[in-house]
Computed example of a mutant assay.
Amino acid sequence: MTITLTDEPTKAPVPARGARRLTPLFFARHLLRLVVSLAVLVVASFAMIHLIPGDPLRHMLGPAAPKELVDARRAELGLDDSLPAQFVHYVQQVFSGDLGTSFFSSQPVSDIIAQGLPNTLALAVLATGVALAVAIPLGLWAAVRTHQGRRRGTETAFTTLTGAAVAIPEYLYGLALLLVFALGAGLLPPAGLTGPASYVLPVTALSIAPAAMIARLARVETLRELDTDYMRLAHAKRLPVRRLYAVHLLPNTLTATLTMGGLLLGGLITGSVLVENVFAWPGLGQRTVEAITQKDYPVAQAMILVYGALVLVVNFLVDVALGVLDPKSSLSAPTRQEG
């Protein structure tokens, strides 16, 4: 691809001969992969309750419950049917939105998910946005400062600090932020969702490690772009710094960075479980931990299904977005060469 430097705003490049473009066939392949992955997820979530040692009904009703009561409850839930019949019934429930009933609260699992999912997604999306907003300028700055081996001290500090930030689990950030800013200084709410200020600590805890990871990637991508011919030409033309970096350099470093951001969104959805428990956040995380500790199998089963489906859908959307942003991605196919 040839990138021409002018004083006009950067426009989307027109695919040259032999370029690659999105095709319905490649889109259909990724969609088929998503459908197959979701089918495997449904099978795995169904198998979970049958692979766990012990009798979940006996645990729910207590060891002293009469056998007749346990058998009646098992028949009521359809657990005395054959395994294929149970699977067919489970698939029908999933597609109808009926994910069962909690053993302990007798609340429909679909209601539990409907109440907590928006709050979990809000945390994940905000944390991804904050991570990108911090990481991209930081990575760009670090690359420009350390280009061609300059400022070894800055490079060492950047790699050391970001490496350490990635290594620390999110829930430890949450505990530290809770102790310092909520319980210590009393500046922010320590728990629950009481207003916009309640988002600050959990979003910060979730975004630190992803921001460090994306910043490292952004620096590598920026260093690669700084050594290209079009950037050398830009320097030779003595373009203003703002135009040089914001208009010409930044757009060409964003594809891999935004792809990583999209993948991290899927990870943050599942990774928010422990952070939500630290801040008593009314999302799916707290209910997931409760379901596991209480052996509330219908709720735990549904959480596996929901978290897995969210990650798969996010990854699919990232693939599609990458195909739109990067014509050389696996979602695109070569166009016919012009003779």
Results as ranks from 00 to 15, higher is better:
Met1Thr: 12
Leu5Asp: 05
Leu5His: 12
Glu8Leu: 14
Pro9Tyr: 11
Ala12Arg: 12
Ala12Asn: 05
Pro13Phe: 05
Val14Tyr: 00
Pro15Thr: 00
Arg17Ser: 04
Arg17Ile: 03
Thr23Lys: 07
Leu25Arg: 12
Phe26Trp: 06
Leu34Thr: 02
Leu34Phe: 08
Val36Arg: 03
Leu38Glu: 07
Ala44Thr: 09
Ala47Cys: 11
Pro56Thr: 06
His59Asp: 01
Met60Ser: 11
Ala64Arg: 02
Ala65Ile: 03
Glu68Gly: 06
Glu68Ala: 15
Arg74Asp: 02
Ala85Ser: 06
Gln86Cys: 09
Gln86Val: 11
Val88Trp: 08
Gln93Gly: 14
Gln93Asn: 14
Leu99Cys: 02
Gln107Glu: 10
Val109Gly: 06
Val109His: 08
Asp111Trp: 04
Ile113Ser: 00
Leu117Asn: 01
Leu117Asp: 05
Asn119Pro: 06
Ala122Tyr: 01
Ala122Leu: 15
Val125Thr: 10
Ala127Tyr: 07
Thr128Gln: 02
Gly129Gln: 03
Ala133Asp: 05
Val134Tyr: 00
Ile136Ser: 05
Leu140Ser: 12
Leu140Val: 15
Ala142Thr: 10
Thr146Met: 08
His147Pro: 08
Gly153Ser: 07
Thr154Lys: 09
Thr154Ala: 15
Phe158Asp: 06
Phe158Arg: 01
Thr159Cys: 12
Thr162Asn: 10
Ala164Ser: 13
Leu172Gly: 04
Leu183Lys: 04
Ala185Gln: 15
Leu188Thr: 11
Tyr199Asp: 00
Pro202Asp: 08
Leu206Gln: 03
Ala209Glu: 06
Ala212Glu: 04
Val220Thr: 15
Leu223Trp: 12
Thr228Trp: 09
Leu233Met: 12
Leu233Thr: 13
His235Tyr: 08
Ala236Ser: 14
Lys237Asp: 05
Leu239Thr: 10
Pro240Ala: 01
Val241Leu: 11
Arg242Gly: 04
Arg242His: 05
Tyr245Thr: 09
His248Ile: 00
Leu249Met: 07
Leu250Val: 09
Leu254Gly: 02
Thr257Asn: 08
Gly262Asp: 00
Gly266Pro: 10
Gly267Asn: 14
Gly267Glu: 07
Ile269Gln: 05
Val273Phe: 05
Val273Lys: 00
Phe279Trp: 11
Pro282Ser: 04
Arg287Val: 03
Arg287His: 03
Val289Phe: 13
Ala291Lys: 10
Tyr297Ala: 05
Gln301Tyr: 10
Gln301His: 07
Gln301Pro: 11
Ile304Pro: 08
Val306Gln: 04
Tyr307Met: 06
Gly308Gln: 08
Ala309Gly: 06
Phe316Gly: 09
Ser332Cys: 15
Ser332Ala: 15
Ala333Ile: 02
Pro334Arg: 12
Glu338Ile: 15
